[in-house]
Design a protein around this nucleic acid. Structure first.
Lengths: 237, 237
DNA sequence: TAATGACCAACTACGCTCATATAGTCAAAA
DNA sequence: TTTTGACTATATGAGCGTAGTTGGTCATTA
């Protein structure tokens, strides 16, 4: 009995190819102007194939953003931040470098189109939730973050967004390079949240470890969510 | 020879009345939906009268925003901030409370309409320019601001905007009251820019004085610009 | 069995017309 | 002399029919 039909592709690999195409087109033309036909053509698959992976157009783009988050977290993790400041500095620096992530954070309607006007996803909160609270507690234990004025998450949100929006706020000639912005974020976060005192080596190491642990956990969550959105159809491939 | 014609109104007072009407309507209906006829009716003057003050609709609204700036600066001044943190804390607190100022800072297109998409006015920089640089220098002299990482203005812009945008960024249930946000801004700015050391009484007073001086100079500039935009026609009234 | 692309219904964009609304003017009123 | 509001030219937008797209399906193909 000879095998019939064409050899099956690796679905994950194919999904990545489709997302690559989608990413390219969305960054160039914006969500509203990017059609499924375009994506299929660019990815070198038939339109129907895309619908083997995602039930709707929107789900394809949801997967795209989830993948961006995976890449972002991995990039931050790769830079091995040792303090909370470095963590968020790298977050902003990397986000500014990634057009899609930047558009998602700034809700750039040129790029996101109607997506920007829809549900304001928890892109910012990054689905950290509990994990981040636990991280903060660990830092407080080690004296890296003061307990005082509370609302840590709020302050960090404001600082991070303030710097992410910066390119929109200042005139062309006053723009700073992304790296410089990342430095300023790191410095500002550390000063805003820290105790001002230098940490004993012991504690500094614990903080670095806690930071990496947080990133690992975030990477894992992000990755799992992304993988789950690669095949949205009921039936497996 | 008996005087002919109707008694002239005080032009400045009348302009304020018109701006009051405009402010109310713009906040309620947005710039795009607010017509000159509406404004005239609400202000109790004829349409022609409005054109005695401003050559175009846009100039009327420019004057409106300039007046908002005057009120904002006066409100900050009235709170007598003694540190740079308090200065910007009060700035954000007051701005959040004033719908028009808030809309201008956030570029809320619901309220500003096409105005938001037009020239991004120097609303934020507040025409402080040189005065603010001089202020910073004075604070550095007195040890209230460290010289170090430079880009002070950039950092402050980011912090201020981050907190101004906060209500747009966090979900309903996590909203903080304006007063709390103002506190957090004050704290964040002081920590981000300060030296961490406490100031001798002497210097603290000098800082407070410098802050008031800055506000006075800003108030004066804002007021002059506003007055100049009350009568835009060539011929005096 | 896995992948395709022709197909279809729904939607969008567009050109056009017409009625209404509106910014700005100016002769007349007070 | 100051203020007015009827007046006008332009802008805006609703309505509508058509041409062209586009998201999503599924019988057919390899």
């Amino acid at each position: 009995m000879g095998r019939v039909g064409r050899p099956p592709q690796d679905p994950v690999q194919r999904a990545h190819g489709i997302l690559d195409a989608a990413a390219e087109l969305v960054v160039r033309w914006g969500y509203d102007k990017t059609t499924i036909d375009d994506v299929a053509k660019r990815a070198g698959v038939a339109k129907g194939t895309i619908y083997l992976h995602w039930k709707t157009r929107d789900e394809l783009f949801a997967a795209l953003l989830r993948r961006e988050r995976v890449y972002l977290v991995e990039a931050i993790r790769a830079s091995a931040p040792a303090t909370m400041g470095e963590l968020f500095g790298e977050f902003v620096g990397s986000a500014l470098r990634r057009p899609l992530m930047r558009a998602a954070l700034v809700r750039d309607s040129e790029v996101l189109g109607k997506l920007a006007r829809m549900k304001q996803r928890s892109t910012m909160r990054l689905d950290m939730g509990d994990a981040f609270d636990a991280y903060l507690d660990r830092l407080i234990e080690h004296g890296a973050v003061r307990e005082a004025p509370r609302d840590h998450m709020t302050v960090i949100t404001a600082i991070v967004h303030g710097f992410v929006f910066l390119p929109e706020l200042v005139p062309e000639e006053a723009q700073l390079p992304d790296e410089r912005i990342a430095e300023l974020v790191a410095d500002t976060v550390d000063r805003a949240m820290g105790t001002g005192r230098a940490l004993p080596e012991q504690d500094a190491q614990a903080v670095a470890q806690a930071t990496l642990d947080l990133l690992d956990s975030m990477a894992e969550v992000a990755h799992r969510r992304f993988m789950a959105s690669l095949i949205t159809k009921e039936r497996a491939l």
